[in-house]
Design a protein around this nucleic acid. Structure first.
Length: 275
DNA sequence: CGCCAGGCAAAAG
DNA sequence: CTTTTGCATGGC
């Protein structure tokens, strides 16, 4: 394990619980496991500014720094916005959260199947998909075998029946359609990187089962579009309770990042927000 | 058992 | 164009 000193606060537990990722785990021996594409990282947290990682310095700099968005000063974003009392409290409470830059296909599928599911149920469904259709990888740390998120071809060939057996329900055809389009090259998630926000949004919405909210999640969590602000039931509750029904987020720079603090705060204070 | 879940597409008004 | 409705299944 190599020790890394961080420029900005990073908190693995908060990231794991912030609803933007579904596969990272706390292994309960003080170690966390993150998966980014075909790379696997084990880490142990000493403080918000010191972690031990299983990779070398080179891989950390090349792969994980951008995954954890560690060149971005989130506190500066907060100060630059038209800050509200609640935003300040939420940023304080959630300090160490990072908006991860995750694999586009994984995000597309994950958020398509997330609709009308609780976060624990989303995790269960995704793990089943990985166990059945993901490539098995042996880790060097004697941590056993890990399954990667399935490739588009694997989900395409899983068939609606296979997807149904992972608990996808009525979303199975949506996932199949998306996997097929990516697998056939009809939808190029790599070229989508070069589209501006508006074109990217419209492209994502052409996928069956992708609406405004899912498209925003993919833009924010896979493509680093930090002005993208997914609006779901939790955000609507926050707007009602704390902003008198009118969301000021959309005008903030880095609104997607700041909104993530609000979302995390609400998730961890359910009593306060559930009607 | 009943209720709800990081919504969406299709139908109806 | 805006509003309503049906949706499969797991977690609690």
């Amino acid at each position: 394990m190599k020790k890394i000193k961080l420029k900005y606060a990073l908190n693995l537990q908060k990231i794991m619980e912030s609803g933007q990722c579904f596969r990272p785990v706390n292994l309960k021996n003080g170690r966390y496991r993150f998966i980014n594409g075909n790379r696997i990282l084990y880490c142990r947290q000493e403080s918000d500014f010191d972690i031990f990682v299983s990779c070398g310095r080179e891989e950390w700099d090349d792969v994980w720094t951008s995954y954890f968005d560690l060149d971005n000063d989130y506190d500066a974003l907060c100060e630059a916005s038209e800050e509200t009392e609640f935003l300040k409290a939420a940023v304080e409470y959630g300090r160490g959260i990072r908006v991860l830059r995750q694999d586009p296909f994984e995000m597309l599928i994950s958020f398509i199947l997330s609709q009308r599911k609780s976060i624990p149920a989303i995790r269960t469904a995704i793990e089943k998909l990985c166990d059945r259709y993901g490539e098995a990888v042996e880790t060097s740390c004697e941590m056993g075998e890990v399954r990667l998120f399935p490739r588009p071809e694997a989900l395409e060939h899983a068939g609606t029946e296979g997807l149904l057996s992972c608990g996808l329900g009525y979303r199975a055809p949506y996932v199949r359609d998306a996997a097929e389009r990516v697998s056939h090259g009809t939808l190029s998630l790599r070229e989508a990187e070069f589209l501006d926000d508006s074109d990217l949004f419209q492209l994502l919405c052409t996928v069956h089962g992708v609406g405004e909210k899912v498209a925003c999640c993919v833009m924010l969590f896979a493509y680093g579009r930090y002005e993208s602000v997914p609006s779901d039931v939790w955000i609507q509750r926050i707007v009602e309770k704390k902003y008198a029904g009118e969301a000021p987020f959309s005008s903030w720079r880095g609104a997607g990042i700041l909104q993530q603090y609000l979302f995390y705060y609400a998730l961890k204070h359910k009593e306060e927000f559930v009607k």
